[in-house]
Amino acid sequence: MSTIVLLALTGIGLAGLYFLVASGLTLIFGLMRVLNFAHGAFLLLGGYCAWLLGAQLMDAAGNVSNAGFLAMLIAALAAGAVIGTLTELVLIRPLYRREFAQVLVTVGLGLVVGALVMGIWGGDPRNFPAPPWTHGIVRILGANVPASRFLLIGVALLVLVALVAFLRHTRYGLIVRAGVENRTMVSALGIDVRRAFTLVFALGGALAGLSGALAGVYFGAVSPGLGSMLLIDAFIVVVIGGLGSITGSALAALAVGLLQQFANYYFTGIGDLAIVLLLAVVLLVRPRGMLGAST
């Protein structure tokens, strides 16, 4: 029982991380039909920004205060938002209506940022400073669950609620939802959809940056490989959930996180294979994913 609880909570925590990366990807794809390969780079920059700040704020034992930690998360969020916005304005916008070129340019940006991080901070993992409580253990139903899992679950839930509220109740949310269905018609109502493009890139970048910092907490370190590793997982989540669907991504993240943890435990180390198979099966049965838009 305690094993199941531990696996489930760890799986949900991982799902939270996947969701944070995937939600931005899915919004960008839904609106712009661009699979953003630079998303891993956004994440990486967020993670390293938080780490840089944390290295300034931490004490000798490698701990930071709660306020310092909050500052680190905000720095990650801001770094992601800035790089996301710049990407859209400088690289994506000049390639308007050339969606394939847009995808390729994000591939290039991913390479460049990955190489830059490697060049500046090296390939070794850097220990990620965090408040002591994140390293603690919570006893729940007989299981010893690392507290960082709850942090991830909490942040992911918060983001999910905020995103849904944004999409439901704000004008830009309305534009994004409509644009996911048919962005030509949105401009045919006299709306400059390109502003919404910048917005989703900023938002997606911010969420990716935040997940970079949270990944640092979850894994205890940041390394240049983090970006591409989580990017592939997020792709899988986005595609299973249906490109463009936030709730789809949330559900798919949950399925993927849980499947991965349980498969890893009960069939030693088969977790990655299991989620890849899940992806293949979902795509072959429903090529648009679980909750994919019909266009």
């Binding site: 309305l174 939802r177 409509a178 269905e181 048919n182 018609m185 949105v186 109502l189």
Partner: peptide, 16 residues
């Protein structure tokens, strides 16, 4: 027509 199927009638109009 190209109405936004996932949006309500009110939302379709509010968008405009």
């Amino acid at each position: 027509r190209d109405v936004f199927a996932g949006l309500t009638v009110a939302e379709n109009l509010r968008l405009a």
